[in-house]
Design a protein around this nucleic acid. Sequence first.
DNA 1: GTATAGTTGACTGTTTTAGTCGGTTTAATA
DNA 2: TATTAAACCGACTAAAACAGTCAACTATAC
Lengths: 161, 161
Amino acid sequence: MRLTTKGRYAVTAMLDLAIHAGKGPVSLADISERQGISLSYLEQLFAKLRRNELVRSVRGPGGGYQLNREQQDIDVAQVIDAVNESVDATGCGHTGNCQDGNVCLTHHLWCDLSSQIHAFLSQISLADLMERNDVRSVAERQGRGHIASFEDSLISAKVTA
Amino acid sequence: MRLTTKGRYAVTAMLDLAIHAGKGPVSLADISERQGISLSYLEQLFAKLRRNELVRSVRGPGGGYQLNREQQDIDVAQVIDAVNESVDATGCGHTGNCQDGNVCLTHHLWCDLSSQIHAFLSQISLADLMERNDVRSVAERQGRGHIASFEDSLISAKVTA
DNA sequence: GTATAGTTGACTGTTTTAGTCGGTTTAATA
DNA sequence: TATTAAACCGACTAAAACAGTCAACTATAC
Ligand code: FES
Ligand code: FES
């Protein structure tokens, strides 16, 4: 089992998509700028998200990505699974054979842990996340941040000119 | 956050130590044979477990390792932390600065998940594990397995001879 | 037709995993 | 006292995953 920036990026990007839904498709360039994630890396992640039918794409100018289901029908576990291939803590993939064909001493412990993690993550939908105060305030800051960095670029343009 | 064979090996080895306590120190060679873990790898893991004062060692012939505390005072989270350096799911180490100094969109989600996992793993002690039926039956099999594999080696010795 | 944005595949440096190998102490025992 | 069983220690390795880059291609709105 592993949970690294790959899974975190995917959930963050999906949440960004949910927040900016309703105004047409969201481009990866926008997400990249707002969330500070490499555009090329996002492309890789969204290829997997699309294969798992969590998002749909619109090509061409003004295009981008949209959620392929309602916000309350996409949970965090699905997103992580899509890019990470499962949040399984066992060494055997639940087959119970990591001790040369037999169940190892701690197999059931890891099964229980996996269930706990999956239960927790699959109970939280994108809609749930959007209602949280901390998410709202960060989204608010990122909105301001976008304008601020635009002004910054004008200032730095003057300085360098 | 990552949970791989390293952490699983550590917990399995500690549980083996608990099961075979009372009959003097347990050598890594014994654990290696019973649990199918590389001896040299076990040495690395036990160096960390000893540094974290979860086990104590006895050198020389007849030596080995012993638990450094009571079985009910060692929990799974401590063992994993000792070899793995924390089961933290955040990207910022709880400092809240992975978005160039600010909290990222999903920071609180990962904090919550980390709490969940830590609460679950720190509530389970080695003593708890030993009472479980599945652990008892696997330990029983491994006792028999040792004799069986000894017979197997005699048979294969005849075959190859 | 041009600019935008998704799509694809190959490539890269770095870190971690899961070990291996060779040697050194330490201590029990024959 | 010599042998030997064990912990200890450091360096090394192949393979995988991570995080990201780059270049080329396709679809489409204007
Ligand atoms: S983790 Fe399932 S058998 Fe070992
Ligand atoms: S995970 Fe803590 S700030 Fe992003």
